[in-house]
């Protein structure tokens, strides 16, 4: 299995064996991510960082991952200060930057941007989010978090919040189906997972249950994965408050959960998790954002050919 020069566009191009290989590589690199070991396997390599949309975690963890492995980072910086502001196409910008870098990480506001970039780039493209489309490195780090903090085999997971528009949830559902997870979907009816994705999961013999309340599922699950519910999805503020309350994760709610239950969230959070949960053994979301570093180290080292 060779990852060298592979574009990382969507989870759908990864088999379970390939995902396992990325997770194993991340585990091997984790001590370096924690600064407990040193490496310069990417010395002399340059990562082009092109973010057309805001980001904290994804951008900084890619940059840290590159630097921890001895590589350098070259950033596009602000879009307003680049030639894109003069109307340069993404295709041309990619063709320019691929001459400066050994791989390019791209976040863009349009769906399909990473696929387009991969058609014009001679170096690997890592999709860091394309509009409402894919965000595969988030899914890799979610799987890695589940494997490190819980277990992927025989997993019972509940996904709560905005399951309709949340791009992380769609990719995660697909990936979890490769591991035979049992999935409970918790959302108000306005934000349900699209029917075609539910059908797709069922056709893979995945047990899927839908409910509107976390309480219905909390006793039986290993992982509770919360996502942000955006106020602007609700025309009526009262309706938003009702939904937000029904999805709020509190220490009182977690008293009914298994002791080993982990609460995950891709962050940023708004009102989904009571801050009092942060100090419980269930809170896993800050560890989850750290795990973005070893996962991105693994992906960078693999696509740049520094590791097999």
């Amino acid at each position: 299995m060779s990852f060298k020069d592979l574009h990382i566009i969507s989870m759908k191009s990864f088999s379970r064996d390939m995902i396992d290989h990325v997770l194993n590589t991340a585990e091997m690199l984790e001590p370096i991510a924690r600064d407990k070991a040193k490496s310069d396997i990417l010395k002399g390599k340059v990562l082009g960082v092109m973010f057309f949309e805001p980001s904290t975690r994804t951008r900084m963890s890619f940059e840290t991952a590159m630097m921890r492995l001895g590589g350098d980072v070259l950033s596009l910086g602000s879009v307003d200060a680049s030639s894109i502001a003069k109307g340069e196409t993404l295709a041309d910008t990619i063709r320019v930057v691929d001459g400066y870098a050994n791989a390019i990480v791209l976040r863009h506001n349009k769906e399909g941007a990473a696929q387009l970039a991969s058609e014009f780039s001679s170096v690997p493209i890592l999709n860091a989010g394309d509009g409402a489309g894919h965000h595969p490195t988030q899914t890799f780090l979610d799987l890695y978090t589940i494997r490190r903090e819980s277990h992927l085999d025989g997993l019972k997971i509940a996904l709560a919040g905005d399951l309709k528009y949340g791009r992380t949830v769609h990719s995660l559902c697909y990936a979890l189906s490769l591991y035979g997870a049992e999935i409970t979907l918790i959302s108000p009816k306005e934000l349900r997972l699209p029917a075609e994705i539910i059908e797709d999961l069922k056709s893979r013999n995945i047990k899927v249950t839908e409910t509107e309340s976390i309480e219905d599922a909390i006793e039986d699950i290993d992982v509770l994965y919360a996502t942000r519910v955006q106020k602007e999805r609700f025309p009526d503020p009262a309706e938003y408050r009702k939904v937000a309350n029904s999805l709020l994760i509190t220490p009182e709610l977690l008293e009914k959960a298994k002791p080993e239950l982990k609460v995950m969230h891709p962050l940023p959070r708004t009102n989904e998790i009571d801050p009092r949960v942060d100090n419980t053994k269930h809170a896993c979301y800050f560890k989850q954002s750290f795990y973005g570093v070893p996962i991105r180290m693994a992906l960078l080292a693999l696509v740049m050919g520094a590791l097999e």
Binding site: T89, L90, H108, N109, K110, E111, G112, A113, L116, E119
Partner: peptide, 13 residues
């Protein structure tokens, strides 16, 4: 049909 698809922008594709 997706107005936000990259193929509906001024890219050379």
């Amino acid at each position: 049909i997706n107005p936000n698809c990259i193929s509906n922008s001024n890219e050379p594709v």
